[in-house]
Design a protein around this nucleic acid. Structure first.
Lengths: 212, 212, 212, 212
DNA sequence: CAATAATCGAGACGGTACGTCTTGTCTTCAC
DNA sequence: GTGAAGACAAGACGTACCGTCTCGATTATTG
């Protein structure tokens, strides 16, 4: 067998040298999440993460430029969308159930981590931008797709732009997540979504769950 | 009135020892605000504040247990309510104009500072509690008074509790303040308050129908 | 009556104003000595002394310019010469018994304090000078008087100057006091004084204790 | 010999990680000695040493637990025995010339440094112990070797133990070094050693008589 | 007896240094 | 080339004392 054969068609052009350790990557993520269970992101040091992960500090720095970006990746790697839009029943049902699922998620550990990440991003526009790109905008884009479906279905007759509608729904939830003045309980979430959907056009009010 | 009387009445119970320097207090506040104009609260060190204020580090630590609590006091000392509830026109007018004034304020320097303070509070429940007591709850209580007036006037017929109504109004604004995905512009604020007030109360409900 | 009369011979010219508190003075001395029983002079702060004495820091600073000078005064106020030259037996007896008494004293608490004071004086020529004037030179002068008597009595025939003879006797004791490589026990002191007095002239050797 | 063999034999067990910087070590020593030329060890701060050496404070603390131990090492690194025992002439000549060389050394900068180190050691038994081990005991052991030779040669017939003899010789010198009441001049040193050596041994004793 | 004056306590103040901690980089050897 | 180990420069942390100061209260002498 010749050399050219061994590097077959589908093989991507493998870099020379020792390949990146996958176990390092995952143990770093585990370490971050484990430490986040005990203290704030701000109070966690990279040294601590490296020690907890059994990895050298340089390895952490080679792959992430700071603690916030590492936390974002660890968070994304872990959650894999616990609050998806599930198409079942009316479009209103789909959206409402997603908002409730999101609230459930944010009441727990994931809300805590998200709170920490958003806090850290306040000190760095660059990190905030990365948070937008890797998390917030993707979620909002997905939400917008369903908002547009709702418009098409006549459930939303309002001329408000998608961003404003999304902020009306999720804004109060994030407000409570970050200000912590009250719990994000089910009745609160129900009040928010009821209020938003009742408002948007008479059809919406009339047809809120006509199919069921 | 005899001397003994007046001394009883007017004498304030002066503490022993050198009195606290008022000029230190104000120059520390000025220093914090000046530095907050150039960088995040997180990136400001107490050493820097002390130097900028021409004060020793110990003096800062004597009066504030950490940077966040100092920032809260500096902020409160400075703002003295730029977005008051002004009673003019209907109760709806009063509330709506306050929300707009608040949004105006948060678009500028005060929003930036508030963002920084809220971020820092995420790392410390104790600091968050102080923020609640010194700022958030006072503002919310004031808002509740006007919400109650609106209820009495029949403008709000909804059975939603005061906290939820407040979060519907201010939540989206704080959401944009903290997540920074979009500006808190006038049209956004108008959309929010219109939406909230159209919904509540019989008149609002009645007025929706004509569109259909 | 003239002024000179009114301020009579024994009356000292009393200053106006509140007189210095004698109780403060003594309680400061007590505090210093008490603290010196637990830690080194270097590790004692003036704040601690003031607190322990129930006195304000300013009172300490008003009367002593630094900790070392205060310690010197506290030490002198306390010891009142525990190792005097007692004239009994021959002049050699007098000197030898004083050296032994001094060694006894230095083995204990007083040696510890003296060690601390001498150490602190190494950092300040001014303090060292005060130590010389208030302690060392007075003691050495007294010793010299007895050395001179010994010379006159023919016990010391050597032409060595008084200072050198004193340093031969006390040097090894202070050496052990300060370097702490060995105890200043009785046999060591005996060896030193025997050695010194045997040396000085045949009379000395012959008459070391002829009277007894 | 094969490669694997040579690597076994000559390989020193190299520690992992970045090796200690030799240039930091020497520049720290230089900084200490330079600063000691201008002020007392007590008045030198570790911050100052680090700055002068162009090194971070943490690097100093990594290798020395305090200023005193650092000063001891800097001193030892620098002096490399300026007052050795040189075997020439009689054993008495050897010892006497060493004592004079030591006095010469102590009259200058080295005496000043030693004074500072001994002073600092008074506040810390641990530091004093290190001073004993790294400096004092080594020097005294060496001196004892020559004392023993002197005994064997009959120059010292006295039954006094080695430590006492050493303290008789060096004690007065250290006494003047530390109390600073008089200079350690050549005539003083000569008086001390003459006195000690005249005393010991039968010849010395015999030679005293003629004077009478 | 009032005025004057020094002392006292309490404790705030501007400073300085402490010894620790974390950051992000660098240097070495091992794989 | 990647990784572990760990030294390094930089610099902030929060604490502890320094020596000074600013108060009001106290305690003496002087007028």
């Amino acid at each position: 067998m010749r050399k050219s054969d061994s590097s077959n068609v589908t093989r991507k052009p493998r870099n020379p040298g020792r390949p990146r350790s996958e176990s390092s990557r995952t143990s770093i993520f585990s370490a971050v999440l484990k430490l986040l269970a005990t203290k704030s992101l701000r109070d966690i040091s990279i040294e601590e993460i490296a020690f907890e992960a059994g990895v050298s500090k340089a390895t952490v720095y080679r792959w992430w430029s700071n603690k916030t970006q590492l936390a974002i990746d660890a968070f994304l790697n872990d959650i894999s969308v616990k609050a998806p839009f599930v198409v079942r029943g009316t479009i209103t049902d789909t959206i409402v159930s997603q908002v409730h699922a999101l609230a459930d998620q944010y009441r727990g550990r994931d809300g805590e981590i998200l709170r920490q990440i958003i806090a850290e991003c306040q000190a760095s526009p660059e990190d905030m931008k990365i948070f937008h790109q890797k998390f917030l905008f993707l979620r909002r884009e997905e939400a917008k797709r369903y908002i547009r479906i709702a418009r098409k279905d006549g459930v939303i007759a309002s001329k408000l732009d998608d961003d404003t509608i999304i902020d009306m729904i999720y804004g109060p939830i994030y407000y409570r997540l970050l200000l912590r003045h009250a719990r994000i309980d089910k009745s609160f979430v129900k009040s928010i979504v009821d209020h938003v959907f009742k408002q948007f056009g008479p059809i919406a009010v009339a047809n809120i769950r006509p199919q069921s």
